Simulated assay, not measured.
Amino acid sequence: MASPGLSEIVTTTLRNRTGVLADNMSKNNALLYRLSKRGKVKPVCGGRTIVQELEYAENSTYQRYSGYELLNVSPSDVISAAEYDWKQASVAVTISGLEQYQNSGEEAIIDLLESRISNAEKTMRNNLSADMYSDGTASSGKQVGGLQLLVADVPTSGTVGGINRASYSFWRNQAFQATSDGGSAASATNIQRYMNTLYQRTTRQTDKVDLIIADTNYYNFYLNSLQAIQRITSDEMASAGFQSIKYMGADVVFDGGIGGGCPSNHMYFLNTDYLMWRPHRDRNMVPSGDVRSINQDASVNLILWMGNMTASNCQLQGVLFQT
């Protein structure tokens, strides 16, 4: 069996990198980076589900009156909540007794561990980033419910946060299908017209889209539709390493290319005031501690994450797409 000393090295090394991993996660994903910047990464202490409060209606007691006219003081039910299930993810870092003694000396062991830990961190980062675009159905529904769930191509059906979208129109996002709603497939010629329509649908007074995420095709359509003088970039996003340009004050971010998470021929219009990343406070990229095999000469440590992605307003989110 692997020595306790080795397990301590693994655990300590992972624990020291926990905060770095959580921080690097946001630097790997434009949406999570924006949520982090806007204070929308909110750890949860626990509970059976993740409860996300939402306002679904205006107060019905507003009235115009004169003099001694009686005023409406009836209770007004305007607050509800969506409930999101917990999702969990793990990546294992292992080392055998043979590898321990082949790499004798603490420094040699740490060198071996660092390469494996670095790979494990990238694996966790990349997979959770991809999950942020998902519909939550992978692995028999154990996947994080991402943008394809919260900002769906077909928002009139399905259940999000325990609320049936077929029954409640306030819980449906905006969707613009290029061919059926615009008349033809998206191109550099019409992309701005389509974007204008969706932008207007997702605007409510001062509430408006602040982040637009596009795949390779739609990003290039928008980029090619602009004259060089119009291509204003975002200092904030550029300094964080994300390729972006501006549209109506919103950052248009490219998330295509190798390993890009945005689905093909999709452009998401996001009001990040109403989107949240909700990790469990005690399971946000943390090591499990020593896990020793009872029938193998090996030591295993797990990087663990638990949480979900939530929305508190879907009407102000939109997707431009072509199926």
Rank of each mutant, 00 (worst) to 15 (best):
S7F: 14
N16Y: 10
Y33T: 05
R34P: 00
K42Q: 14
V44G: 02
R48F: 05
Q52S: 07
Q63S: 14
R64S: 11
Y65Q: 13
I79Q: 05
W86H: 03
K87Q: 12
S90F: 13
V91D: 03
S96E: 02
L98I: 13
S104F: 14
D111Y: 04
L113F: 11
S115M: 08
N119Y: 13
S129R: 07
A130C: 06
Y133A: 06
S134R: 01
G141I: 05
V144G: 03
G146A: 10
L147R: 02
Q148A: 14
Q148W: 09
A152I: 05
T159M: 00
Y168I: 14
F170T: 13
F170G: 09
W171A: 09
S180M: 10
D181N: 15
G183Q: 06
G183W: 04
T189R: 01
Q192Y: 07
Q200P: 07
D207H: 04
L211Y: 13
I212H: 04
L226D: 03
D251A: 13
V252F: 06
V253M: 10
D255P: 00
T272R: 02
R281C: 04
V286E: 05
P287V: 12
P287D: 15
D290K: 01
S293K: 09
A298R: 10
S299T: 12
N301L: 06
N301P: 01
N308P: 01
A311R: 05
N313F: 00
N313S: 03
Q322K: 02
Q322S: 08
